[in-house]
Nucleic acid binder design. Sequence first.
DNA 1: CTGAAAGCGCTTACAG
DNA 2: CTGAAAGCGCTTACAG
Lengths: 345, 345
Amino acid sequence: MVTIKDVARMAQVGISTVSRVFSQHPDVSAETKDRVLKVAKQLRYRPHRTARQLVTNRTETICFVLSNRDIASPFHSKILLGAEQYARSLAHSVIFLRFNHSPGVPQEELVLPPIIWERGTVDGLILAGTNYPNFVRAVKELGIPFVLFGNNLIGRLATDDIDSVWYDNQGGGRKATEYLVSLGHKKIWFVGDLKLPWYRRCYQGYVGSINAHGLVLKVMEPRGDESLFDFGSRCAAQIAEAGNRPSAVVAGDDEIALGILSGFNASGVKVPADVSLIGFDDIDEIKYLRPPLTTIRVLKEKVGEELARVLFERLANPTARPVRHVIPAELVVRQSTASPDGGRQ
Amino acid sequence: MVTIKDVARMAQVGISTVSRVFSQHPDVSAETKDRVLKVAKQLRYRPHRTARQLVTNRTETICFVLSNRDIASPFHSKILLGAEQYARSLAHSVIFLRFNHSPGVPQEELVLPPIIWERGTVDGLILAGTNYPNFVRAVKELGIPFVLFGNNLIGRLATDDIDSVWYDNQGGGRKATEYLVSLGHKKIWFVGDLKLPWYRRCYQGYVGSINAHGLVLKVMEPRGDESLFDFGSRCAAQIAEAGNRPSAVVAGDDEIALGILSGFNASGVKVPADVSLIGFDDIDEIKYLRPPLTTIRVLKEKVGEELARVLFERLANPTARPVRHVIPAELVVRQSTASPDGGRQ
DNA sequence: CTGAAAGCGCTTACAG
DNA sequence: CTGAAAGCGCTTACAG
């Protein structure tokens, strides 16, 4: 194992000089630098990162924490990709860590993973996935810089004294509803789980738009622990049988919309001829459907990038005021929406 | 910043003792251990990982390298999840790193990312994504333990002296074809890009099965740089117009199958009534299609788990013979396949 | 521009 | 069972 000492000896310089050469320090003569580099190459010297980290007290590594997601989530893997890309552009690495915690455990009793709890592992954290206040508070208590992906936070937690990045759930719900109204729809229902904050915010957007136009609210909620897809299918079946059927449905997310579409198909309800349908997220699955689903697009890579950007700003400026960054959600019109008279728009 | 020294002083022991307590060393009296632990807690002592790493020369971290994949790949993110899960069960962390390299760059000129090139960053590597021989050789040259995800390797490289994990492309192609034959199909075409090894292996399975049953081979290949989906659509259109239409199609992967299905829909060809269709990979998108696609399932999380397992075995036993682990691919029958007479099977 | 020396926070023989 | 000491491979004032 060749170290800085070996290079120094062979190049006939002190180890400080070798160190300066490798850390791009300007105060090294071109001549010396050349010689050191040549010797280093010849010796196949490779700097030891751990040793550097111990002195500088910087790991140049951040940790992407995915909380409480056991299954592969394409949504969150795109957030990870965005974060990794940004971190890499700043010569930082990303440790990917899954961490499950239940909301019921008191904050003091929460056993944090070593990567977070030990010092000198990472410079900061991105908290993604579904997080609960006990965990977020425990992290805050540690004093390690972090940024929270806000949308999937469940529970009561003041977020004004922490850095957070959100996509605009409420604005998305509003845009979806406004678009349906603009097509001429008067009876627009909402399908989602109001117990979960991200659906609730989307619902608030829906409510705002419905009220602004003097229309009537109607929401369908899940029962028991049915899957999102089954929830959607069941709602579709009910809607198909309903006497005063809506002409349009806003689904809380694309998975629910997938279930609704499947349920409508099974019941012979045509989308969009009989009922218009609009989803939320823009997951890849919905592009290949017939009809391709109109939805609210969340720029997932952008969310990841912003999470990383906010974290690095925090690292650069520990005393700055906490920020709350909201990324707009945009309408993507495909073919599951039409005017209520049946004419495609 | 409280260190081991502070704990030692306050607990009135030497730092060795504190170290032993935290590294679960057995030779510490229960009494001393209690006292140290109490003091540590009181002082909110958190061990410094970097310092430990410098001495032990172990980072307890592995790196998941995703080569040449710019877009979010659900396939590879599941492999990452499997690897992370296994690593975590062994108290190791996973650094996620994307690395793009072109096959044309000579091995010596390849600039490796610092995480790989520097010492003391990770104990070993998982090479996933699309890799080329120059990169794999450069990594091998470094002497860092690694395991290669074999299927997406492109180019000439002897893999018998390196650890690798594969899923059974060829067996999958064979199973798909055998199943169609068992349904009574006589005219079965293959759609895929034979320039890429993973399609080629699948094709070889197809060929084996076709030949064994004395049937006739027919393959359709992409032209130019059309996307997989467009490639599939185009082939479907051609098949729809063909005089002697096949009764079944084996697609090189699900994305191509998605295109084929879309093309058939556009041309009025019914699946499976007119033509049976079978894909490869079992990506999430195909479950919600009508008809849901019969496919060859690749257990992606399992691939990730095996990659990690093989790597950890290498770390534990550096001199063992290289292994080549192949994971079977299994048939998943859904509704895009039927007997050629049109009756669902 | 350069080098000797101190020090980062641990682990680990070694001696007791 | 316990502690003093050496050492892991670097960086960084400090002095020249």
